[in-house]
Design a protein around this nucleic acid. Structure first.
Lengths: 151, 151
DNA sequence: CTAGATGCAAATCGTTTGCACCAAT
DNA sequence: ATTGGTGCAAACGATTTGCATCTAG
């Protein structure tokens, strides 16, 4: 994990940006919560535990900075605020799909890529060069949809 | 097209809501712009041409009302505002996928459903009961991606 | 020293809400 | 009359920005 921070630092440095302590805290929070999808305010609150003097604006600016370098990825699940995740760009586009439970709000991440043939088809049919995609699937998770309950 | 308005009126009426002139203008604007994805403010501006005394709040309230009856569908393309389209719910979930050109901002609509087998798989693998899904594909449209230009 | 980084508060922007008034049953 | 519909302005919540200060190279 330490390596990741170094990589990010290098990425910033090579573009005249600094890896400051505050920025490192933001990054750590994102790294330690890879599975979650934190909002700016949630990141802010977690960073404040370690750096109580941090400002919300700094968190926003840092998230924006990281986003612009594709270090993290922002998304929205329709709740009016952006959410961030440490983004694994594997080179040929982002591959994170989310199952969003409309009942309990849980978000399940599906990391497998299931859209390859679809991309092919879109490319050909619409002459559209895909760089990324985002798939949100709404429904009910297993806990919210008991076997014996229909809807 | 006149029939659609009647249908909507009926849908509202059967739930104790009225199809008022203002609401009809909002609906008409959406109908006349099926291919576009208008924001609340854009709808407002178009409605104002016919009904200059309309208020923005009414437009928001009407859009919310129509959404709650699945007459229209709201979505967001990451530009910080909700966008609305006259929604064709074919009964087994919504099927609108969008190709979003990251260069010119054009939004191409794909109405075919390409995700049926994916849904099957998700249902089985994650025990997740799908009610809807939303797929956004980012990239460059044919006009913004000349054959001889690589990226 | 100089430019970027930061905190704070004010500003912004899309959207929502409270309230008084209007319209239709 | 009663209930829902509407305009206006104020309220809101997430995000951004202006500015003075701080800090690292």
């Amino acid at each position: 994990m330490r390596g990741v921070i170094g990589e990010v630092e290098e990425k910033l440095r090579s573009n005249e940006y600094k890896m400051t302590p505050k920025r490192e805290y933001v990054l750590r929070v994102l790294l330690e919560n890879k599975d979650k999808h934190l909002s700016a305010e949630e990141v802010y609150n977690l960073v404040k535990i370690k750096a109580p003097d941090v400002g919300l604006a700094t968190v926003y600016r840092t998230l924006e900075l990281f986003s612009s370098f594709d270090i993290i990825h922002s998304m929205d699940f329709g709740d009016g605020r952006k959410r961030y995740e440490f983004g694994v760009d594997n080179g040929d586009g982002h591959r994170h799909h989310h199952l969003i439970c409309v009942q309990c709000g849980k978000i399940i991440e599906m990391n497998e890529d299931l859209l390859e043939d679809l991309e092919e088809r879109v490319n050909r049919t619409y002459n559209f060069t895909i760089s990324d995609h985002e798939l949100k699937i709404f429904g009910r998770c297993s806990e919210c949809m008991p076997k014996n309950k229909k809807e």
